[in-house]
Design a protein around this nucleic acid. Structure first.
Length: 648
DNA sequence: CAGCGCTGCGCCCTCTGCTGGAGACCC
DNA sequence: AGGGTCTCCAGCAGAGGGCGCAGCGCTG
């Protein structure tokens, strides 16, 4: 329970609640060359700041200026400084680094993305620019006129992985306006020694290095306003180690109490005492309903309210009520006032909470601090990693209440329920054609594939027409659909499909590519070979018989039986059960498209069977299931001869 | 010291968009 | 019969909204 009171300037670690708290004197001093501050930037300036980020870096000669955008009153901005890894390729840095080794301790490097980085040239930089320690102030939210604590990492060359980085706490004071960061060898020395550094030329710069676990070094870097009295921080920490209850008064007589266990400081001993309880398990207030213990009675009361449902803070604009007034205030900002004081300096995003802005900033920086321990995935917040872990565990926590299908994400299930079981399913109509998709993303794919202008010409496969849009090409090619585009060069035969022509050509060439493995007879068509094999080599083969219901005459082909029926004047009879094995061939298609397709095939077959396009009435036995069941294996027979053979 | 106001962190949720496999369709 | 294309659909991740809760500054 040891708390140490140390003496630090009163502004340090203190957040001013009002931007106006910055003193005119301080502003004047800044104007005098070290820091330049402006009370209210013009709109143009704000726009420029928005464009270039929250702060800009200028390195005029050996001097470094850190330009900070000044927000409008009440706004809070994120300052993001990006990590800089010095490599041998960083010629600019190589040139710069030695130059600043003597004089420059901190510098801000304008990164390519428009983000900024703070490079700390520590002791290592004296040996080689490659060994510079780079300090990246990742992000923090603060009123720009405020003193603020920032988190950043100290990275060494070739050290990868944020978890490996040393964490540092930085306090930046007097952020508004531009600041020239003064440097000195003393700071460098103190950084290395783990002590503190004071400003030179009137600027105070505090460094505090704390040894952590094996690979961690904690550095507390505090940059204070120019008019702040220099503290003896290094001494304070020596005293801290020896006398934990020691106190030091500042020039103004104010005291700061410092927690020995963490970096917490407070100007009130009561706050420190309350804070110290957070380092203990001391929780004297116990909930009588669940036996959970709490540190303060206020926390206990709020907790009990969660049991009882007591929500004393009612929103005046809706029915919502909350346990604490703070929750109500936040709710009102979200739902009613839409006040969003946290504004991103790199885009127009604004949020109710600072943590949301912080999270948003990661979408600019690409930072992914939450690593999956099973794969290389890293998320921008812990929740993403948790969701990602389902891909490893196979967990599917969301179940469709209708079909009980399970899903990894609630959104996926919602889409499923809507589109599989919903009645008013939203559809996405393509503006260029009749295509309707169930999902917007699919419409996008459709537009991309079919309606995107292609620089390369796409040629019609049937004619010389060319197109730059795939959809237009497909529509055009459909106009060729019913053409008998394939014409025999030896006779007047014409057909729609190339494979039909291939078969037909064999009637001219005499080619017989299909040989029977049992008797070595050869056939020009595969179907002829199949029929031959079944009839002469397959003992289990039972030919389909369609009987005329009137006279009982049998037929192997349905259409022949139907033709016979017209003469007999009776109706069609179903095939006998012995024909069941072959019945599937005669199924009536239920799909209208299939029906049309078969009708088309039947029509073509009829055309072929009639021999109207074949000189001498010779018809090649070909294509189509209607023919498959009854052809004679004799490749030289005409269709009529085959039918005559097969029919009874 | 209690209480208020506020902040930060974490969690859960929704919306959105991209991706790739499966199956239907077309040729 | 088989390959190419397209649509459907689930998986998955990015981004952000909203809220619960613990802790801290400040004040009476």
């Amino acid at each position: 329970m040891a708390g140490t009171e140390i003496s630090v300037p009163p502004e340090q670690f203190t957040k001013s609640k009002e931007p106006g708290l910055i003193t005119e004197k301080a502003l004047e001093e800044e104007e005098e060359g070290v820091c330049r501050a402006r009370e209210h930037p013009s709109s143009e300036e704000l726009e420029a700041e928005s464009t270039h980020g929250a702060l800009q870096a200028k390195i005029p000669g050996d001097e470094l200026e850190l330009l900070l955008a000044i927000p409008e009153e009440g706004e809070k901005h994120i300052l993001t400084l990006q990590m800089v890894h010095l490599t041998s390729e960083d010629a600019e840095l190589q040139d710069l680094a030695p130059q600043h080794q003597e004089e420059v301790q901190g510098m801000v490097q304008q990164a390519g993305s428009g983000l900024q980085s703070l490079v700390w040239l520590g002791e290592g930089s004296q040996q080689s620019p490659h060994q510079c320690v780079t300090i990246s102030i990742q992000e923090e939210v603060y009123l720009l006129q405020e003193v603020e604590v920032m988190q950043f990492h100290v990275l060494e060359e070739n050290v990868t992985g944020a978890s490996e980085d040393s964490k540092c706490a930085v306090s930046l004071a007097e952020s508004s306006g531009s600041r020239k960061l003064e440097k000195g060898q003393e700071e460098e020395r103190l950084l290395a020694e783990g002590g503190s550094s004071e400003e030179t030329e009137g600027q105070f710069l505090l460094l505090e290095v704390r040894p952590g676990d094996e690979e961690r070094v904690e550095i507390v870097l505090t940059i204070s306003p120019l008019n702040i009295e220099k503290p003896a921080l290094g001494q304070a920490h020596v005293e801290e180690a020896n006398a934990t209850e020691s106190q030091k008064k500042t020039k103004e007589g104010k005291r700061t109490f410092h927690c020995d266990i963490c970096t917490f400081t407070s100007s009130r001993i009561s706050s420190l005492n309350r804070h110290l309880k957070t380092h203990t398990n001391e929780k004297p207030y116990t909930c009588h309903l669940c036996l959970k213990a709490f540190r303060t009675v206020t926390v206990l009361r709020n907790h009990i309210n969660t049991h009882t449902g007591t929500r004393p803070y009612q929103c005046g604009d809706c029915d919502m009520a909350f346990v604490t007034s703070g929750e109500r205030a936040r709710h009102r900002r979200y739902k009613h006032t839409h006040e969003k004081p946290f504004k991103c300096s790199m885009c127009k995003y604004a949020s109710v909470e600072a943590s949301k802005l912080k999270r948003h900033i990661r979408s600019h920086t690409g930072e992914r601090p939450f690593q999956c321990h099973l794969c290389s995935y890293a998320g921008k917040d812990a929740c993403k990693v948790k969701r990602h872990m389902r891909t490893h565990s196979g967990e599917r926590p969301y179940e469709c209440h209708i079909c009980h299908a399970r899903f990894t994400q609630s959104g996926t299930m919602k889409i499923h329920v809507l589109q599989k079981h919903g009645e008013n399913v939203p559809k996405y109509q393509c503006p260029h054609c009749d295509t309707v998709t169930a999902r917007k993303s699919d419409l996008r794919v459709h537009l991309l594939k079919l309606h995107t202008y292609e620089a390369a010409e796409m040629k019609c496969r049937y004619c010389s027409a060319v197109f730059h849009e795939r959809y237009a090409l497909i529509q055009h090619q459909k106009t060729h659909k019913n053409e008998k585009r394939f014409k025999c060069e030896h006779c007047s035969y014409a057909c729609k499909q190339e494979r039909h022509m291939t078969v037909h050509i064999r009637t001219h060439t005499g080619e017989k590519p299909f040989a029977c493995l049992s008797c070595n007879r050869r056939f020009p068509q595969k179907q002829l070979l199949n029929v031959h094999f079944k009839k002469y080599h397959d003992t289990t083969f039972v030919p389909t018989v369609y009987k005329c219901p009137r006279c009982g005459k049998g037929f192997t082909r349905l259409n022949n039986m139907q033709r016979h029926l017209k003469k007999c004047g009776s109706r069609q009879e179903k095939p006998t059960t012995s024909e069941k094995g072959r019945r599937t061939r005669m199924r009536k298609p239920t799909n209208p498209k299939e029906t049309a397709k078969e009708d088309e095939a039947a029509a073509e077959e009829a055309s072929l069977v009639s021999g109207e396009q074949y000189p001498g009435g010779l018809v090649p036995i070909d294509f189509g299931e209607a023919m498959a069941g009854g052809e004679d294996p004799d490749e030289d027979m005409t269709c009529e001869m085959i039918l005559a053979t097969m029919e009874n």
